[in-house]
C-alpha cells in the first residue's frame, strides 16, 4: 500500500490528481448535466422542445438580444474608460501610480452585491432615476478593473525600444500610439473583453437591484426558470449562453498572436 502511494507521488504528473478530480466533479459533471437536461423533458425523454420554446417566445429572444446589447455597451464603455487609465498607470513610475493601482483594486475586495447596493443608495442620494442608465453605470463600475489590468499588464511589459524605433522613424507621439502601442496592446484588450463581456451577459443581481426589477437580462430569465423548477428549459437557456461564450472566446483566440504575445489576464 505504502509502495503504491510512493509510486503515486513520485511522478510530478500525479500531483495534479486532486485538481483533476475537483474539476471533474464540479465543472465537467455539471456541464454534462446541463447538456442532458437541455435535451430532455420532465420525463427524461430526448427532445428539442426546450430550444423550440426559446425561439418561439419573442420575449425570451428579445431579452437575450437586449442582454447582449447591454454587454456590448458595457464592454465598449470599459475599453474607452479603461484603456486611458491603464495607459496612465503604465506610464507613471512614481509612488503615486502605486496608490492609483491600489485604488482600482480596492473596490474589488468588497462583495459585488454590497457595491451594487451602495450604488443604488448613491443614485437615491443624488436623486437620479434607477433604470437603464444606472444599469450601465453599475456594470461598467463593477467590471472596469477586469479591463484595466490586462491592458495595464501588456502596456507595462511592452519593450520601450518599439516606441523608440517608431519615434526614430519619424512618428510623433500620436502616430506612435496608433501605429505601434495600440496594435501591440491588442492582446491585453482581447483579454479584457473576455473578462468583461462574458460575465456581463449572464449577470442578474446587478440588473435587478439597479433597475428595481424593471429591466430583465438573460441571466434573470435563466435564474427565474431554474428557481421555478423549470430545469430543462433553464438548462437549454444556459447552453445557448455557453455556446455564445464559446463562440466569443474562439473568435478572440483566433486573432493573430493573441495568446503567444503574452496578453495575460493578470
Amino acid at each position: 500500500m505504502s509502495n503504491l502511494l510512493e509510486r503515486l507521488f513520485s511522478s510530478r504528473k500525479n500531483w495534479t490528481l486532486p485538481y483533476v478530480l475537483f474539476a471533474a466533479l464540479f465543472v465537467v459533471v455539471p456541464l454534462l448535466l446541463i447538456v442532458v437536461y437541455a435535451f430532455t423533458d420532465d420525463g427524461g425523454r430526448l427532445t428539442l422542445a426546450n430550444f423550440g420554446k426559446f425561439f418561439d417566445h419573442p420575449e425570451a429572444v428579445n431579452t437575450f438580444i437586449y442582454s447582449i446589447g447591454i454587454a456590448i455597451i458595457t464592454t465598449i464603455g470599459c475599453i474607452l474608460l479603461g484603456y486611458p487609465a491603464a495607459w496612465i498607470l503604465s506610464r507613471s513610475r512614481s509612488r503615486y501610480a502605486q496608490v492609483l493601482i491600489l485604488l482600482f483594486i480596492l473596490p474589488m475586495w468588497v462583495n459585488v452585491l454590497i457595491r451594487t447596493l451602495a450604488t443604488v443608495a448613491l443614485f437615491d442620494f443624488c436623486r437620479l432615476p434607477l433604470g437603464e442608465g444606472a444599469l450601465i453605470f453599475g456594470m461598467i463600475y463593477n467590471f472596469i478593473p477586469f479591463m484595466i489590468f490586462p491592458i495595464y499588464n501588456t502596456l507595462l511589459k511592452m519593450d520601450r525600444s518599439y516606441i523608440e524605433a517608431a519615434e526614430d522613424l519619424g512618428a510623433n507621439s500620436t502616430q506612435v500610439f496608433w501605429k505601434v502601442v495600440l496594435p501591440l496592446s491588442m492582446p491585453g484588450v482581447v483579454s479584457g473583453i473576455m473578462m468583461v463581456f462574458m460575465p456581463t451577459v449572464s449577470t442578474f443581481a446587478i440588473a435587478e437591484l439597479l433597475t428595481m426589477n424593471n429591466i430583465k437580462l438573460f441571466g434573470t430569465t435563466m435564474q427565474e426558470n431554474i428557481n421555478n423548477s423549470m430545469w430543462n428549459y433553464g438548462a437549454a437557456l444556459s447552453l445557448i449562453m455557453l455556446f455564445l461564450i464559446a463562440a466569443t472566446s474562439l473568435f478572440s483566440s483566433d486573432g493573430k498572436g493573441g495568446s503567444e504575445k503574452g496578453g495575460s489576464l493578470w
Binding site: 519593450d159 525600444s161 518599439y162 523608440e164 524605433a165 517608431a166 519615434e167 526614430d168 522613424l169 519619424g170 512618428a171 510623433n172 505601434v180 496594435p183 501591440l184 491588442m186 493573430k256 498572436g257 504575445k261
Partner: peptide, 20 residues
C-alpha cells in the same frame, strides 16, 4: 528637437522590429 524630427536613424541592439 524630438527624435522624429532629427535627420538620423537608428539600428537598435535588439533590432526592435515591430512584431505586428
Amino acid at each position: 528637437i524630438p527624435p522624429y524630427k532629427r535627420p538620423v536613424n537608428t539600428v537598435f541592439q535588439k533590432y526592435a522590429l515591430f512584431p505586428h
